[in-house]
Each structure stands twice: as structure tokens, then as C-alpha cells.
Amino acid sequence: MKKKWILYGIALLCMILFIILPFPASDLSLRLVLDEEYPISTDTFYLYYETDGQGFQGDQMLTATVDAEKGIVTFRLASSLQGRLTGLRIDLPNTEQVVGIKDVTVSSAGVVKHRYHPCVFLAPENLKAQNGIRTISLVNARAKAYVGTTPDDPYLILSDPLTAQIAGMFSHYLLTRILVCLFLVACFASYRKNLFGEKQVNSPQSNTN
């Protein structure tokens, strides 16, 4: 009996350590879901990122082409940027057009951490600076934002609070670790409780040593 409780204690301790000990961060994905009316193309979008307040530099850049089927642009920020990200700049294609955005999501560890209403994401208070942009129309009734671009290097720099909010979404798989432990505990509890009664007589599942 005592031995059993010692084993339970060790198992519980291992699970607690597994949950609370530091874990590497996951990459972070920033997705722009474009309006259906966006012309099907292989337009390239760019995301410049600033680290440690050192300004946007040419080599700190990600490119992403539009997924023509889903109309999604995805930028994947490496987990090594966690704790260092201080600025984000989204560069739109160098053409005169209207880019409709209907959703913005931030994902990490495979799940969506936050979904931004496009009218909130591109609200004036969430933009620090812009260039080459004719107009930004926020249509709340349709939950869409339309960005009119020019061929003169159009880009949007996100505000510091918004950047900090996005930068804080790198996941350390905490929920994943908790759920793994919960699953194991649930399996053990199910085993002890024997939810479906005694072993069946006529089943290969009852064929033991």
C-alpha cells in the first residue's frame, strides 16, 4: 500500500516537473486572410521584423506568397525571436490595387492564439507608420478592411503595443503538456474504474497470457 502511494507520488512529481519546467518556444504564425475579391495571383508579401529595438534591417525579413486556394498569407516567425521582437512591418505588393483583409490570426504551437478583427488590426491607433498607402477603409459592417496601395513601396508598421501583444503569443506548449498529463491520469483512472465492466469472454481482447 505504502509502495503504491510512493509510486503515485513519484508519478505526480514527474508530471508537475514536466509541466512547470521551462520548455522551448514554438514558432509563431501571423496570417492575413484576404478577401475573396482579391485577384488570384502569386503576389508576394513581406514581413520585416525588428529585434531588440535596432530598427528594420534587410536580412530580417520573411516572404510569403498568397495561397491562391484559401487566399491566405502566412508569415512564420522563428521561436528564437521570442523575447526579442520589438517591431513588425507588413509590406504589401508593389502595385496599385486594393487589398481586402477579412481576418488576421496569430497562431503558435499549432493553435490560434488570437484572432484580430481586421478593422481593429488596421485601426489608426494600431499603426505606427505607413508608406505608399492611398487609403485604409475600415468597413465594420462587413468586418473587412480595405487597403489601397500604390506602386511606391507600400507598407504598414504596427504600433508598439500591438507588436508587444503579438510578440507575447509565442507558445511554450503549456496547455499541451497539461493535456498530456491529464490524458495519462484519465487513462489510469479509467483503468482503475473499469468503465466497461469485466473482461469479455468471447473476444480476442480477452485473450491474455
Binding site: F188, K199, S206
Partner: peptide
């Protein structure tokens, strides 16, 4: 399958197939 293992872990540990 994970849900089935959760429901009836004993069979997956004691049966040949499991």
C-alpha cells in the same frame, strides 16, 4: 483510437491486438 484507449485501457494493454 485515443478515445477508445481512454475508455478501455485494459483491453489495449492485455489483448494481443492492443
Amino acid at each position: 483510437p485515443l478515445f477508445m484507449i481512454l475508455l478501455d485501457p485494459a483491453s489495449f494493454l492485455t489483448s494481443e491486438a492492443g
